[in-house]
Design a protein around this nucleic acid. Structure first.
Lengths: 140, 140
DNA sequence: TCTTGACCTAAAGTTAGGTTTAGGTATTAC
DNA sequence: GTAATACCTAAACCTAACTTTAGGTCAAGA
């Protein structure tokens, strides 16, 4: 259903990611609760959170309304993280766009001579923008 | 300069990421070549490439013009990867937007009763959109 | 009956990408 | 002269997030 190996589900459970999971004579029963937990786990993992922090969140969920502020703050923080990650990826994309253009040119020319001496001002505008953007933060 | 630990630079070199690096009586000399390599390494790493694949790219760079097509294809593939990653992150963001709204409501209400019975149709439009978007791929 | 398959546990193993340590050389600062 | 630094290597260590293995229980089907 979720394309997650059984071993991973057991690992998650061992790590405390399903604090309230019910068992039927030893066998884990995944209810709508846990399905939902899996969605949140997936989301929080992709937002950069570690398992132990996801566990803490799952604990908050069983602790009730007193932990609403903590949970809200967590999601706000992760939203911020993802926004920053997207910005980094946009810079990465700029570099990749530039590199694709670069090697298209190199293939046409058969060598990198012309490119080696090219200044940003001589590049097509969109490529120059990509070049400049991708050479920002890591420079100097 | 790049805020990379010396140990990491040595590790990269050991992994073959600076194939043509020059040494002055045993000591590595980082020229403009290697500075540029570091930018590309950073970009390729963030695009999801592993060290051993970056090494392969660096090898191509010393092999000359015959590897232009391979290099171009690599950058095109990584561009694709990053685009897909951005889409995944947009879905994650939708979930986070929904969760932030959810807990803002829960804090106002003091409990989750109202929210528990709420159907997507009853949510504010932007939140409903976020909810629907974030519940897409992992569902059923 | 028996054997196939789904579930279980605890514990060991795996992988990537570094980091740390131990031991050594060479240059600079006082 | 000697002491603090910056560099070097090889090899051991580390962490997160799984995965694999070994060994066992139980129920259904041929």
């Amino acid at each position: 259903m979720f394309d997650i190996p059984v071993s991973t589900l057991r690992y998650y459970d061992k790590e405390g990611l399903f604090p309230g999971i019910h068992r039927d004579s030893g066998i884990r029963k995944f209810s709508e609760q846990e399905i939902d937990a899996l969605r949140v786990i997936d989301c929080l993992k992709k937002s950069g959170l570690e398992i132990k922090d996801i566990k803490r969140f799952m604990q908050w969920c069983v602790e009730g309304s007193s932990t609403y502020p903590a949970r809200l703050e967590l999601f706000r923080r992760q939203k911020q993280c993802v926004e920053e990650e997207m910005q980094r990826l946009q810079q990465v994309q700029a570099m990749l766009r530039f590199k694709c253009w670069y090697y298209e040119q190199a293939m046409q020319d058969g060598n990198e001579e012309r490119l080696r001496h090219m200044k940003p001002e001589e590049m097509p505008e969109d490529i120059r923008k990509a070049y400049v953007q991708s050479h920002l933060t890591l420079d100097e």
